[in-house]
Design a binder for these strands. Structure first.
Lengths: 183, 183
DNA sequence: GTCTATAAGGGGATAGAC
DNA sequence: GTCTATCCCCTTATAGAC
């Protein structure tokens, strides 16, 4: 095999392959060799560049939610919009989330999951809430959204996958009820 | 080591050890050897009795929810009671559920998770509901309860672990809102 | 910067004696 | 029914040549 391009692009090729395979098959079921093969790179390089498989996993399984669509929405429609954003597939929130959940037997992966849950689900909700129970309400709403992801992707609840619009509306209503302070 | 008791009790010892370790450490992080050690039994016997590690896992990670407390409760308090039952630690619903979620990268374990989700969460809710949307509502409520478990145990959301009573009441209210038909 | 070759360990599972 | 001994595969990770 010919020597490939410079170190920079090799690193990126490994990262891209790892990101894809980890999301598709999860941590435990993705050998380093498979990552190397997909990246068309020597297996030794994977470790050389990233130190260990776990480092590589943590390096690739990050999330930053795009909260722009959340900023300009009126508070009484926030629940629906939030569900909409989470379910939007542009960023692969769901895949990364799923991989983290399944890998959470490993302590450091669990830690990353907590960060992702906090930063991507709790924080955006919390930012728009006020009142004494704001924190608890944000966490409950985040848990509910987590439950939606769990149901859709982990248990594969196809019966819940009605029209996307219906899902966003009904689930949005649940979230909305939680974040709206009790009368 | 002296020969232990009869085959019957050996089988039970293996089952008990496996059940405990799988719940504590999960599928991937529990070697057959550790199960044998805890059961004070030869490693070869584990496979001999149960065929494979995966079979043993599926054999031990079952759930049957005790739905007696659900039968005599008035429908308008059903949500709260349901959350109460799920969080009651008598049966280790949560541990088994957690182990199944984390193991769900394996196809057969995912299948078992779907069964458990269906039988222990969806079905008890569905049994008390009626109306056109009954099925969808039952599934959404089940997903929400799954979200609670997810948040409490998988991400370890300690901030959500307020007083148990508070949790049951507030989360029960959410479930109740879902299973109560819209006006 | 990339390769070959291999170390070093752990895993599940099996054969066959007792 | 239970044991010892071991097979065999797969894994991550490293050493050192090119």
């Amino acid at each position: 095999m010919a020597t490939r391009a410079s170190g920079r692009s090799t690193r990126e090729a490994i990262r891209a392959a790892a990101s894809r395979l980890f999301r598709e098959r999860g941590y435990a079921r993705t050998p380093v060799r498979d990552i190397a093969a997909l990246a068309e790179v020597n297996p030794a390089l994977v470790i050389r560049y990233f130190g260990s498989k776990e480092e590589l996993f943590l390096e690739t399984m990050r999330l930053t939610i795009d909260d722009e669509p959340l900023l300009d929405v009126p508070i009484d429609r926030f629940g629906e919009r939030f569900v909409d954003v989470v379910l939007s597939s542009e960023q692969d929130i769901r895949d990364v989330h799923l991989a983290l959940v399944r890998g959470s037997g490993e302590e450091r992966i669990a830690e990353r999951l907590r960060e992702v849950h906090e930063d991507s689900l709790v924080a955006p909700l919390r930012a728009r809430l006020s009142g004494v129970d704001a924190d608890l309400r944000a966490r409950m709403a985040a848990a509910v959204v987590g439950g939606l992801l769990y149901s859709l992707w982990i248990v594969g609840d196809h019966a819940l996958e009605s029209e996307r619009d219906v899902l966003v509306r009904r689930y949005g209503a649940i979230v909305q009820d939680i974040i709206t302070p009790e009368t």
